[in-house]
Simulated scan of single mutants.
Amino acid sequence: MDLHPSRAEIRERVTARLPTPEEAEILRISPNLAVLAITRVAVDGTGRVVEAALLVFPGHRADAYFITRPMTVEKRREG
């Protein structure tokens, strides 16, 4: 069950990159160790952003697992 029925689309971008100096300090990792950065934006049917997040994890201690269940047009009309 979707707890946020106003979400029409969720956009996620996953990037492997070197950390910023602040990220390296907060995560207590070497600035030469890659991080996994996930940017997530959820928008409603009008295109309005209803959720936004930036998550940064040490690359050597992170796994990413995604499940996407697109909503059909019929289900949107029922809601």
Rank of each mutant, 00 (worst) to 15 (best):
E9S: 13
A16D: 12
A62D: 04
V50E: 04
L36G: 02
V49L: 04
A42S: 15
D44L: 04
E12R: 14
L33M: 13
T20P: 01
A16F: 10
R69I: 11
N32V: 04
E12D: 13
A8Y: 13
R11E: 12
A37M: 08
L54A: 06
L36H: 05
F66R: 15
R28T: 12
E51P: 01
A34T: 11
A24D: 02
V35M: 01
T15W: 04
A34E: 14
V43N: 03
I38P: 00
P31V: 02
L33Q: 15
R77N: 08
D2V: 13
L27K: 01
V41I: 12
A34S: 08
A53H: 11
R76T: 07
E22H: 09
D2E: 12
A8M: 07
V35D: 00
T72R: 14
R13W: 03
R76S: 05
M1G: 14
T72Q: 07
E78F: 10
S6T: 09
A8Q: 07
V56Q: 01
I26D: 03
R76C: 03
N32I: 01
T72H: 05
L36P: 00
A37D: 04
Y65K: 13
P19R: 00
R76E: 09
G79M: 12
L54E: 12
P31Q: 05
L18D: 02
D63G: 07
I67K: 09
V43Q: 06
V73Q: 10
R7F: 08
V35L: 02
L18F: 10
D44R: 00
D44S: 04
I26V: 15
E12F: 14
G59R: 06
H60D: 10
H60Y: 08
R7W: 09
V35G: 00
E23N: 02
A52F: 07
A52N: 07
V43Y: 01
E22F: 04
E12I: 08
R13I: 10
K75Q: 15
A24E: 02
T15E: 13
P19L: 00
H60S: 09
G59N: 06
R69L: 14
E22C: 04
L33P: 00
E12M: 14
E22M: 05
P70F: 05
T20I: 04
V43G: 01
I38R: 04
V14T: 09
D63Q: 07
A53T: 08
V50F: 02
T68G: 08
V35P: 00
A53R: 09
R77F: 10
A62I: 05
P19C: 02
I10L: 11
V43E: 10
